[in-house]
Design a protein around this nucleic acid. Structure first.
Length: 404
DNA sequence: ATTCCACAGGAAACAGTGGTCC
DNA sequence: GGACCACTGTTTCCTGTGGAAT
């Protein structure tokens, strides 16, 4: 034991004042950062530019569909190309408008369209956030484009999700979007769809495919070597020189490469590892830090998922924990008991199975269908994370703290 | 060969919320 | 103030299913 034990707060303060920081530029390690050089994507950049070029000549460019797994630089490339176009255009007086929307961030089709409307400059009054029919919203979008003779580019990220929303609501808004140029007298509308799912096109209305898929660009997954190069570049920009050990870099690339070549994840991993090393006042980021970062990210994901669930889902997770490895019926009765003890009206079993499937998607529990002959068919669920993590997380919930 | 269990999971309907429009 | 809209979370109803038991 050392003779002088420092107060933890003291220690922290000490560190911030005297400690060296390893990261000199944090924004570089954020996924919205657009680097000057997007490695291994020259061809794709050229293609995107090619198909958007007509917009500068006031003629209608083709709609583009972009495919690729997460973290393959799709959004980055599109944003970069568009910002270049924007730069070029700003010098002239040519009315061009870039609209970006992520289907996943908006939970509804309506929300997405309203988001587009806001970006086009429609106020709350001109386009209320609720109450209108979808076709009315769409009409208003087209009206403003027409009125201001705008040349608009709609970039729809995760368009597969939008397609999913549309299919639920029996609306053919995607079709209308792709064909809206016929309804616009002044200006134009170009669609750039970005999708993580390579098979989503099969589920689309054939009419939409023919007009949306005028131009298709596929982003292949990065190899470990490519990720290595990408990380090298970011390290140079973001970290103090020599702050990341070669072996740590290798591990980072290898870990992300194993997970389907996701560069974004690799960069995230690097950032978290850097933060851990910094907090510990180490001179360098080591392999060990990367491993711990990976673990921490995993845990954070779990606790965040648990916390974000509404009460009944939390009760269900508890029920699964109590009746570990058991069938739906047993989980249901465990859940009913829990509901009684917190004085909540229990939901139906049908709803419960639905919620179980939802929770299963997040990876907190895993289910397996078991046929038991005359004892019927059931799905057995068990926790995939430690009960301790769950207890710790649920303790923060006022209603549940006594149960845990 | 037939029966029958204990659910899975799809479809549709419904209630409730928070809004517009005329 | 009534008709209408989108949307969520839920209930109700339903059909389907693999294999142990008979």
């Amino acid at each position: 034991m050392s003779t002088t034990t420092l107060d933890p707060i003291e220690k922290l303060l000490e560190a911030t004042v005297s400690g060296k920081s390893l990261i000199k530029n944090r924004t570089v390690l954020h996924h919205t950062f657009i680097p000057n050089n997007i490695h291994h994507r020259d061809l794709e950049q050229e293609k995107v530019t090619q198909s958007l070029l007509p917009i500068l000549k006031q003629s209608r460019p083709s709609n583009i569909l972009i495919y690729g797994k997460p973290g393959t630089g799709k959004t980055l490339v599109v944003r970069r190309v568009l910002s270049k176009i924007q730069e070029r255009v700003e010098k002239t007086n040519f009315p061009i408008k870039l609209i970006y929307g992520n289907s996943k961030e908006e939970t509804t089709l309506y929300g997405l369209l309203v988001d587009f409307g806001r970006q086009l400059g429609l106020s709350e009054k001109e386009l209320p956030t609720t109450g209108l029919s979808i076709s009315e919203v769409f009409k208003r979008l087209l009206r403003i484009i027409n009125k201001n003779s705008l040349n608009t580019v709609f970039i729809i990220d995760e368009i597969d999700f939008l397609a999913h929303l549309v299919s639920k609501s029996k609306n053919d808004i995607l079709y209308q979007l792709t064909r809206s140029n016929d309804r616009i007298k002044n200006g134009s509308l170009t669609l750039v769809g970005i999708s993580n799912d390579l098979t989503f096109k099969d589920r689309l209305d054939p009419r939409v495919i023919s007009s949306l898929g005028e131009e298709e660009i596929v982003f292949t997954s990065y190899s470990v070597n490519q990720i290595h190069k990408i990380l090298e570049d970011r390290i140079q920009l973001a970290f103090v020189e020599g702050a990341v050990e070669e072996s740590a870099l290798n591990l980072c690339a290898a870990m992300a490469g194993r997970e389907h070549g996701d560069a974004r994840r690799a960069i995230d991993l690097l950032r978290v590892a850097g933060e851990i090393a910094e907090r510990e006042q180490k001179e360098k980021v080591s392999e060990e830090h990367v491993r711990r970062a990976s673990q921490k990210m995993e845990e954070d994901k779990e606790t965040a998922a648990i916390q974000s669930y509404p009460l009944h889902e939390k009760l269900l997770i508890l029920a699964v924990m109590r009746a570990g490895g058991s069938s739906t019926g047993e989980i249901f009765s465990a859940y009913t008991k829990l509901c009684k003890s917190v004085r909540q009206k229990e939901l139906t079993q049908r709803r419960m199975t639905q919620m179980l499937s939802e929770i299963e998607l997040s990876g907190i529990i895993s289910g397996r269908i078991v046929h038991q002959g005359i004892h019927g068919r059931t799905k057995k669920f068990k926790l995939t994370i430690s009960p301790e993590t769950i207890k710790q997380t649920l303790k923060k919930d006022l209603i549940l703290e006594d149960l845990v």
